[in-house]
């Protein structure tokens, strides 16, 4: 175990992001996120843990579109955590905003409190028509209806690497731990790592002049750091 607990952060480089949706599907595959179908999507009940928001700027023909992947921001001062009556969501020593599915009773208070609206809810019983259930990742709980789920920074992958490294008597190296979205991101727009390790890539990127935090003025101190697009880093 590390002497100081890591602080996991995700860097999202908006200059690299192409909006390709690879992270969206990778997340869905890794975390057993059910597909809800057309009707539920129309109702506003889609379940992506990570979604790419698209913003328009300007008007035709001088119009620009920007992409911004948004997932649970893993806030340190998370507005969602204290409101849960049963501690189903809380803050772990390594800076994760944890969601314990089997503890959740489904008050949706955290969802109402979340300023980023990244907490999703299992509105109906998730369905995996046979044999699609074979795709389910055995490392992640399959959620039933009536509970909140959200991005966990793929904690199962963090643990897997940690246990592996520990068994080999070493610490995980920087970049070895990758959530599914980071692993697959074709333009390398996502970087994951330990902010408490000053030599890690995320620590360096976090000091970039391009870095900003989503709704930073709320003071939630997110664990997701964005790098502004359209500028060089130098």
């Amino acid at each position: 175990m590390a002497e100081i607990e890591p602080r996991w952060v995700l860097i999202v480089d908006l200059d690299r992001c192409t909006g390709c949706q690879a992270c969206v599907v990778a997340c869905q595959a890794e975390n057993n996120v059910p597909t809800v179908g057309e009707h539920e999507t129309i109702e506003g009940r889609w379940l992506h843990w990570i979604h790419i928001e698209r913003y328009w700027e300007g008007e035709y023909p001088n119009i620009k579109a920007r992409f911004m992947p948004v997932m649970c921001q893993q806030c340190t001062a998370a507005p969602c955590e204290p409101v849960c009556p049963v501690f189903a969501t809380y803050h772990t020593p390594e800076g994760l905003n944890a969601q314990i599915y089997n503890r959740c009773i489904g008050t949706r208070f955290c969802g109402s409190a979340c300023p980023y609206k990244t907490r999703t809810y299992n509105w109906l019983r998730p369905e995996f028509p046979e044999p699609l259930h074979e795709q389910l990742n055995p490392d992640v709980t399959v959620r039933s209806r009536g509970l909140i789920e959200k991005c966990t920074f793929c904690v199962q992958r963090i643990r897997r690497i940690e246990i592996e490294a520990h068994a080999q008597g070493r610490e995980p190296v920087d970049g070895e731990i990758q959530p599914a979205c980071v692993q697959t991101c074709p333009p390398d727009a996502l970087v994951f790592g330990d902010l408490n390790d000053p030599s890690s890539r995320v620590s360096q990127l976090a000091t970039s002049h391009r870095s900003f935090k989503l709704l930073g003025e709320l003071g939630t101190d997110p664990g997701v750091i964005y790098l502004k697009g359209g500028e060089t880093n130098v």
């Binding site: 539920e40 109702e43 506003g44 009940r45 889609w46 489904g106 949706r108 969802g111 109402s112 609206k117 999703t120 809810y121 299992n122 509105w123 109906l124 019983r125 209806r145 009536g146």
Partner: peptide, 15 residues
């Protein structure tokens, strides 16, 4: 039996 989805609530109108 069917879940909260049978109500009209959604995201972001959780309540």
């Amino acid at each position: 039996y069917w879940g909260m989805g049978t109500a009209g609530i959604n995201r972001p109108v959780y309540w």
